[in-house]
Design a protein around this nucleic acid. Structure first.
Lengths: 215, 215
DNA sequence: AATAATTTTGCAGGGTCTGCATCTTTGCCT
DNA sequence: AGGCAAAGATGCAGACCCTGCAAAATTATT
């Protein structure tokens, strides 16, 4: 408090940093081992061994064996929802959600290697896709709430037509699905197309009501 | 072969009937117990006990504990895909998929009680939703293939624009998602709206590119 | 009625996951 | 510095999940 002025915020402290490091070490070890030997042949013990922690510690970071193989960043979803809530009220809903997602694409491509590697693991173990979709569904529901907020800011308290109540959930679900399809498609063709391009194309098709593409 | 002429087909035989009965008994016991005590408090032993089989037999019918709680009918998906493949080549893709799904809706409402009950279980245990989505994703991929077949029957072997390759996967994924959203929405409001109505409404919104619903 | 095929079952064993007690590490204070 | 309190890591016991394998029971066929 006297000689050295501490940076009052920002620095998470050694404790938190070590925790994050441990978490990343476990996740990275899990993905690498899975890419080499296949998911079902990678035990918690092996992951812990490679990450340099005890098997018991593994479960302090991941609730289940499978959860170690999917990469989830909570902050991304929160930024997306905030972006939706602050969107101009008169824009097309699909555009609002699309742009909110596109804004996060840069950080996505930055970790390209990691995602491609994980995509391979997920393709070999479809059973893990659903673990990834777990976060997906959670995101979907939170996004639906954000969309409802955004829409509600236009006209509060009015009798709605039958479709209105489903709309936020449908838009959120479709947007997440489009994102997933774009990523899967992009993973299948590494380096061939930019993710942003696939992404924009997919949303364009959605906006047109999924017409038959010109052959 | 001599005295009694056997009904050459149709009758599945006592063996097959008992198997189906056992399977249904296990599934029903699982759902009922889960509805009462919560999924995580229902062990395989308890389910087997209630179904009148040994714990080992449980795993002869369901690959995992969680799989006993989701109802899947393989034949339904096959009928849907066949319907898509046989559709007129000049119809709007979204309509083709919609109608293929709508045709199965009757059989769906017939088991209304069962589905509502299961929806409650799934709502209390989100972790099971993904198990249900497992079949969902499998269906999605198979459906994408069927859509590709159907589209391909129009013009085989032509240079495709960037969006064309994604289209079948996107359409299949979006259609499955729309189905899921419709079912969830319908489960939340039992008896208020017919599933077919929600379903048609959702697809209408998709066909219009998800515009803002009139408030 | 006897035999063959299929299903059910018990058992052993490995893997997942949790709660609890203990030990080590980290953060903060004088 | 040195010590105290909080938090994380670890080991262990135990319940549960899941899978082979071989024996017993049930069903189909001759």
């Amino acid at each position: 408090m006297h000689a050295v002025a501490k940076t009052t915020t920002s620095v998470p402290g050694l404790r938190e940093r070590k925790k994050q490091a441990t978490r990343r070490a476990i996740a990275e070890a899990a993905v690498r081992l899975a890419a080499e030997h296949g998911v079902e042949n990678v035990t918690v013990e092996a992951i812990s061994e490679a990450a340099g922690v005890s098997p018991r510690t593994f479960f302090n970071y991941f609730p289940s064996h499978d959860d170690a193989f999917v990469l989830v960043d909570d902050e991304v979803g929160e930024r997306i929802r905030e972006s939706v809530r602050l969107a101009p009220a008169d824009r097309p809903p699909l555009d609002v959600v699309r742009d909110a997602l596109v804004a996060e694409l840069d950080g996505f491509e930055a970790r390209k290697e990691l995602w491609v590697l994980q995509c391979k693991v997920l393709q070999r173990s479809p059973h893990l896709i659903h673990r990834g979709l777990k976060a997906h569904v959670a995101e979907e529901r939170a996004l639906a709430v954000a969309i409802t907020d955004w829409l509600g800011s236009t006209r509060p308290g009015t009798d709605a037509p039958p479709g209105a109540a489903v709309f936020p959930r449908l838009l959120a679900a479709v947007a997440q699905t489009a994102l997933r399809v774009a990523v899967e498609h992009w993973c299948d063709r590494p380096g061939e197309t930019a993710l942003a391009e696939v992404f924009r194309d997919v949303f364009a098709q959605l906006a047109q009501g999924l017409p038959r593409p010109p052959a």
